[in-house]
Amino acid sequence: MEFWSEYLSSLLMGFLTTSELVAISAPLGIILGIALGASRVYGGIILGSFARGFSALFRGFPLIVTLFLVFFGLPEIGIYLPPVTSAILSFSLCSGAYISEYVRGAIMSIDQGQSLAAKAIGMTKLQEVLYIILPQAIRRAIYGISNEIVYMIQYSSLAFAIGVQEMYSVARTYNSLYFKSLEIFSLLAVIYLVLTALTTLFFKGLIRKLEIPSKAE
């Protein structure tokens, strides 16, 4: 009983840390992804190249490398970030790079007529992108974005490697103390499953809310 009481209370703390990581990294990653995706299409040579380079870079090596670079590498140039901040920064950069791909693809799929019609009523390029193209593109990209956020819940466990006391880290510690692997990781798996299911449900609701009616009602 003592094990379960201790484990559950520690796991709750870990759960809160995992939730904090995802709740902050997800919106940052989405905003970054939208900005990068739009820059890749509309950013011209300089901004477009930067966005392409950024996306290629952060999709080009494993997240754990980004985590180590941010947490262990940056202090060598005088930038010290706490573990949770390092993890949030790494997750945001990584998910931003992947989400930018979904957003770019979605923007490219919007038919040219929408852009022409926006121009024809006197919209500037920025107005056209903000009010006409992105609202439609984000609706198309949201399926990919929701998938990316579900992945983020899974890969948030990598934060243990830089000392963040999230759920997986707590489970790992308890396993090394009590060797009750089946109980410890089964419960952890259930919690991840619930988190994933709740996130999926949230996005399903959001998709329903944003859906553009397509047939006569």
């Binding site: 007529g113 024809a120 439609q136």
Partner: peptide, 27 residues
């Protein structure tokens, strides 16, 4: 210059009234 396209280029994500209002509010 008002321009009406042959391809029925209404903004898909806006209602009929939203299509008419967007130029008035944003432009």
């Amino acid at each position: 210059i008002g321009f009406v396209f042959q391809e029925l280029n209404l903004f898909h994500h806006l209602t009929a009234i939203g299509n008419v209002m967007i130029g008035l509010t944003k432009v």
